[in-house]
Nucleic acid binder design. Sequence first.
DNA 1: AAGCCTTTGAAGGTC
DNA 2: GACCTTCAAAGGCTT
Length: 270
Amino acid sequence: MYKDTVYSAFNLLMHYPPPSGAGQHPQPQPPLHNKASQPSHGVPQLSPLYDHFSSPHPTPAPADISQKQVHRPLQTPDLSGFYSLTSGSMGQLPHTVSWFTHPPLMLGSGVPGHPAAIPHPAIVPSSGKQELQPYDRSLKAQADSKAEKEAKKPTIKKPLNAFMLYMKEMRAKVIAECTLKESAAINQILGRRWHALSREEQAKYYELARKERQLHMQLYPGWSARDNYGKKKRRSREKHQESNSDPGSPKKCRARFGLNQQTDWCGPCR
DNA sequence: AAGCCTTTGAAGGTC
DNA sequence: GACCTTCAAAGGCTT
């Protein structure tokens, strides 16, 4: 799927090279060791390798990069191939590689609704049912249209982290080797393989992820991961909230009850 | 049809 | 600073 859309971030970065150190956006700091994200299967987690990646020679960038975005919207009309691979091999790090294609920037949010458009709550027929007058219907249609536009707004996704980039590349291989299709099982295998990688091998993906984040920051300066919070409705969360014991995330749940969901692996899938 | 499962890492929030 | 939560991908499975 991801092979159909090959988006060259090389070209993109040629147009929008990363800013020099004192740019608008600070360089991402090496992430703290997060106990919460320790693997449940007891494999010691390698510390992130950003220390090795602090480039002493950052590529200079135009100061007006955000304005360039405004005047030169990205040329990626199709969002279906949001992420793409530039080549099948990760053996050699390309100078710049983009794993995600960038949806058109959302500029100008349209005409905002006027507060006066909200009918006074007191003006309600005694029946409790509000009969819409022609004027009200027009307002309702306007509101619907606005909501529709909101829904159609392309979501700016989070940039992929190192492991996600690794998964994207290796998934097909694991599927072929193990004749599995279920993503949950495949991801377990990929998680094991990820930990089996050497630091150097992982470093390639950490570096790619770092570039992805950098590019993402340049393309969407005001974007926050928080923007996408709540867009996925979760049943489990509601379940957990209903429960008094509040076991929390599935990870915590398993840890708490000592569950081991590792299945029996075939040889190549270890 | 929508959400879950499963993984790691990043980021935002709370205390 | 420690800890928690959410979301990135993916596709079969469940509700």
